[in-house]
């Protein structure tokens, strides 16, 4: 695999001095799904906007498919499809016309058979002659996706594609994303729904305050950063931690049970010792349960450590 999008030392300072991106470097492999996570205002949209040519960078460079996005903007942009965060559509135009328009704008000859396939896939075919203003919010989002796919892009950017979208469309959308990936399309998405990133992404990048905190394979990240919790229910609830157990990373639950946090990648998890000490302290366990921390927990920890 080779990098289809290569970002080097990208910086963006807006007029007025706001630094939206600070020397971001990132290689995106062909055919992968990369999820960019980050709180609002972290710089995700700025990063996407620069790659797509909507915003000028203050420093650094980007290549897409080997084309510099400024010097060879035609080559670079022809490869890119963008689904923007805001639903911006010509209200008085019909669905098919606006999709056809985008295809032409990106330099492709009219191909009604291909557009029909996309519109059918997005359940828009029956609405093709409808004016956009008559469509529901979810349908409008589908139109945005159809437009982004109209010129058969090799790299697809989805900026918060599922914000305010119902369950059905979300399911459809991830279906389409998987289908595109099977065709070898590279997909970069930003999302607030971390469980989605967890479900679909190959790699995860975390952005905060204009800096890329990390980019890592999702599974490796979860294994490395992930902590596990062991929940211990006791026959007789506790009011306070017994003295002999204070050395452990333990906390009391509301029901008087215990939660032990440990790191699976550490040399010793300490579970065996803990269980032995519990017995010495005369505590009887009635149940045990372990839980892996989610990507969301990892994300929150990362952003909190980075500070505002």
């Amino acid at each position: 695999m080779s990098a289809i999008v290569s970002v080097k030392g990208l910086g963006k300072t807006y007029e007025g001095g706001f630094e939206a991106l600070r020397a971001v470097s990132l290689d995106i492999e062909e055919g992968e799904i990369l999820a960019l996570l980050g709180p609002n205002g972290a710089g995700k949209t700025t990063l996407i906007s620069i790659i797509c040519g909507i915003t000028n960078p203050s420093g650094g460079s980007v290549t897409v498919g080997g084309f510099d996005t400024i010097r060879d903007f035609r080559g670079a942009r022809a490869l890119i499809g963008l689904v923007p965060q805001e639903v911006s559509l010509e209200p008085f135009e019909s669905v098919i016309n606006t999709v056809r328009f985008t295809r032409g704008l990106f330099g492709k000859k009219r191909d009604d058979a291909y557009l029909e396939r996309i519109l059918r896939q997005l359940s828009l075919w029956d609405k093709r002659a409808d004016r956009i203003m008559t469509l529901s919010g979810g349908m409008k989002r589908r139109v945005l996706i159809a437009k982004a796919l109209s010129h058969q892009p090799r790299v697809l950017f989805l900026d918060e594609p599922t914000a305010g979208v119902d369950v059905e469309l979300r399911k459809d959308m991830w279906e389409i994303v998987r289908g595109l990936r099977a065709d070898g399309v590279t997909i970069i998405l930003t999302t607030h729904y971390i469980e989605e990133a967890e479900a679909i992404a190959d790699r995860v990048g975390v952005i905060n305050n204009g800096e890329l905190l990390l980019v890592e394979e999702k599974n490796a990240l979860m294994a490395r950063m992930g902590k596990k919790e062991l929940r211990i229910d006791l026959a007789r609830p506790l009011d306070a931690l017994p003295k002999p157990l204070e050395a452990y990373d333990l906390r009391l639950t509301d029901e008087g049970g215990l939660i032990y946090t440990y790191d699976t990648s550490a040399e010793k998890t300490g579970i065996t010792d803990l269980l032995a000490d519990l017995r010495h302290a005369g505590l009887h366990m009635v149940d045990l349960d372990t839980r892996q921390s989610s990507l969301e927990d990892i994300f929150v920890d990362l952003v909190r450590e980075d500070g505002p």
Binding site: C52, I54, R74, A78, L82, L89, E90, L105, F106
Partner: peptide, 18 residues
């Protein structure tokens, strides 16, 4: 002006058109 106003100008800016 209209594409600027409704936001569809993003398409023009991101298109491989000078």
């Amino acid at each position: 002006y209209f594409p600027k106003f409704i936001g569809t100008v993003y398409e023009l800016l991101s298109a491989p058109a000078s």
